[in-house]
Nucleic acid binder design. Structure first.
Length: 423
RNA sequence: GGAGAGAUGGCCGAGCUGGCUGAAGGCGCUCGCCUGCUAAGCGAGUAAGCGGCUUAAAACUGCUUCGAGGGUUCGAAUCCCUCUCUCUCCGCCA
């Protein structure tokens, strides 16, 4: 959520930013409603001021045993006026809030302007895509052939976009989860958290999934509860409605959770394999930091996510997303894209974002930097560290052998009981 | 699922026979004093949100806020209704 005062003072810039995010007109009516609200506020506050003073006088008169009937009647008459104005103001505030909650974050000045992913900027590249001496297979063929992934039986259980992992496939999934958590906690200083996989609507509002993206989530029937689409939601919301001592910042948190996404509107995209699932596993990184350090923290967080791909020796590149391709809550996002032979291209495996105070304002996460300083909104960051299912896909494809077997990356072997080859 | 208790400021905790309580007291924190240092002691200060004023901020000023929503009243933290959450006991259960 943006600060209404900032919109008021800089509406030209905000409107331009929204155009760059393909959201022109999102601010429509905001300024009018805002002005109307302040006008009515001034009115009603004046009347309330009178009421407060008069009521005190009534008390004083009664104490002295004098008659206060006339004054009481006068105040009684203001009651209806106040009620009417309060209702009008509330109505306007509801409208203003609706607008505010549906406005995306303003991109940072370093973000390239562009309409879609074609304007994303490649920042750096690591590793060389392997030159195959044979025709490489896609992971949706490798997995079933080795009987470690079972898409057909998953469909029997749950329908499309679900996968059953079996044998060494299941073990590989678990190994990667543990490996990622170990690296981030042991080497990068994140605190491990194991949150609920279902959260309430306030959390979803706090991180920006609601109200706009309700159809992307799985909601529990008859309850105001949602399956988490990413651990970013419970981790960031851990500190919702809290005041943090600035001395304690920054918070680095990492969590494994399953993630649940309805994938509404993505019919026909990535229909095969592990790439786009209704349920997938992910190790997430979340930081809550002081406002002045969030861009340094974004660079570090991105490097932390990159590190696990380097250890797995998977080639990847880092993309700086343009204004039109960023997520709703983000001010700046780096995507990590891993080399995927089946696509003959790089494919997103992580998204690292600085949300600045956008989520903190929605979730009311504040801190006091020091001494008598005023409260301010914290900055929140999140990044996949990284997606597990897509890691499995990348390993199967990049580590495949001509006979259909798959070499286990060296760093994972201790997590796989020493296994070197899945065959 | 049954019975009961509770929700107040950064924290603990009074108030709950309606006005002088934005809220006692304590802790914490900040500043000052004092004492070789530290500890202790003394004094002062210390909520947030939204408006107004201001080039902007501070200061000043108004309104709102004692779990949420509604009601009674000239006036509600205090009375009434509804809801949510937390805790204790019993039952059931991984």
């Amino acid at each position: 959520m943006l600060d209404a005062k900032i919109i008021r003072a800089n509406h030209q810039q905000v409107e331009e930013a929204l155009r760059n995010r393909n959201m022109p007109g999102a601010l429509e009516n905001f300024l009018n409603l805002d002005e109307e609200r302040r006008k009515l506020l001034t009115q009603v506050e004046e009347i309330k001021g009178f009421r407060n003073k008069a009521s005190q006088e009534v008390g004083a008169l009664k104490k002295k045993g004098q008659d206060a009937a006339e004054l009481m009647e006068k105040v009684r008459q203001t009651g209806q006026e106040i009620k009417t104005l309060d209702e009008k103001i509330k109505e306007i505030e509801t409208k203003l809030n609706k607008i505010l909650l549906n406005i995306p974050n303003i991109p940072h000045e370093s973000v390239p302007v562009g309409a879609d992913e074609n304007s994303n900027l490649e920042v750096r590249r690591w590793g060389e895509p392997r030159q195959f001496t044979f025709e490489p297979q896609a992971h949706w063929d490798i997995g079933p052939n080795l009987d470690v992934l079972d898409f057909e039986r998953a469909a029997k259980l749950s329908g499309a976009r679900f996968t059953v992992y079996k044998g060494w496939g299941a073990r590989l999934e678990r190994a990667i989860i543990n490996f990622y958590l170990d690296i981030h906690t042991g080497e990068h200083g994140y605190r491990e958290v194991f949150p609920p996989f279902m959260v309430n609507g306030e959390c979803m509002l706090g991180t920006g999934q609601l109200p706009k993206f309700a159809e992307d989530m799985f909601k529990i029937e008859g309850r105001e509860m949602y399956m988490v689409p990413t651990a970013e939601v419970p981790l960031t919301n851990l500190y919702r409605e809290e005041i943090i001592d600035g001395q304690d910042l920054p918070f680095y948190m990492t969590a494994y959770t399953a993630c649940f996404r309805a994938e509404a509107g993505s019919h026909g995209r990535d229909t095969r394999g592990l790439i786009r699932q209704h349920q997938f596993n992910k190790v997430e990184l979340v930081k809550i930091v002081a406002a002045d350090s969030s861009y340094d923290e974004l660079e570090k967080l991105t490097r932390d996510a990159e590190r696990v791909l380097q250890l797995l020796e998977l080639p990847y590149r880092v993309m700086l997303l343009c204004t039109g391709d960023m997520g709703f809550s983000s001010a700046k996002t780096y995507d990590l894209e891993v080399w995927m032979p089946s696509y003959n291209d790089y494919k997103e495996i992580s998204s690292c974002s600085n949300c600045e105070d956008f989520q903190a304002r929605r979730a009311n996460i504040r801190y006091r930097s020091a001494r008598g300083e005023k409260l301010q909104y914290a900055h929140t960051l999140n990044g996949s560290g990284v997606a597990i299912g897509r890691t499995v896909a990348a390993i199967l494809e990049n580590y495949q052998q001509e006979d259909g077997s798959v070499l286990v990356p060296k760093v994972l072997r201790p997590y796989m009981g020493g296994l070197e080859l899945i065959k």
